[in-house]
Amino acid sequence: MPFVKFWNDQLEFYGGLTLLFKQVIHDTFSGKFYWRLLFDQILQVGVKSLPLVLITAASTGMVMALQFGVGLEKFGGKLYVPKLVALIILREMGPVFTSLMVAARIGAGFASEIGSMVVTQQIDAIRAMGTSPIKRIVIPRVLACLIALPILTASANIVGNLGSLWVGAYELDLDGNFYLLKILSTVTLKDYFSGFFKTFFFALFIALPACYFGLTVTKGTKEVGIATTKAVVVGSIMILVGNYFLSKLFWIIGTVL
C-alpha cells in the first residue's frame, strides 16, 4: 500500500500544481492587478537575493577556473580555461546555482509565510472579504520570480566570469586581456540564451511548488515547517532534474537554428 500512496501523493501534487498554474495564468490577465504587491515581491526576491547570488557566482567561477587550470595544466591545456569556464557558467552553473540559491532563500520564505497565513486564517479572511489569495498572494510571487531570476542570473554570469578572470590572471598566470578576449570571443548569444530561457522555467519551479505547499497547509504550525522543507526540496529537485531536460531541449533547438 505505501507504493499506491506514493503515486497517489505524486498525482495529487502535480495535479494541484497544474491547477494552480492554470489559475495563475487566468487570473493574471483578468480583473484587478496588484502592482504594489508585485514591486514588494520583486524587492524581496530580486534585490535582497542579490548578495547571496553574487557571492555564490563569484566563488563558483573562481573555483572552476582554479580546478580547470590546475587540471588542464598537466596536458598543456591551460589556455582553454577561459573558454571552458565561460561556457559552463553561461549554460549551466549561472542559471542552476542562482536558481538553487533563490529556491532555498525564497522558496522557503514563500512556503512559511503563506503557510502561516493559512494557519492564522488570513487566507480565509482574504477570501471571506471577497478578494482573491491567488491574485494578492500567489501571482505577485510567481511574477516576481519570473522577472527577477533572469536578471539575477545575468548578474551571476557576469560576476562568475569576473571571478574566473581574477583567478586566471592572478593564480594561473594567464594574461588578463587575453583571458577576457577569450571569454568574449567564445561565448555566443546562443550560449547565453540557452541559460537565459531556462531561468523562466526555474522561476516557476521555485514559486509554484512553494506557494502550493504553503496554501495546502491545513492545520498547525508544525505543518508549516514541513511545507517549508518540501518547498525547498521539491523546488531544488525540479530545477536539477529539469535542467538536464531543458539543456537537452535547448541543445536540440540550438542545432536546428
Binding site: 492564522t120 486564517q121 488570513q122 480565509d124 479572511a125 471571506a128
Partner: peptide
C-alpha cells in the same frame, strides 16, 4: 461579514 474565531488580522 465573517467574524473569525481568532481575529484573522493581516499581520
Amino acid at each position: 461579514a465573517y467574524i473569525f474565531q481568532g481575529g484573522a488580522l493581516f499581520d
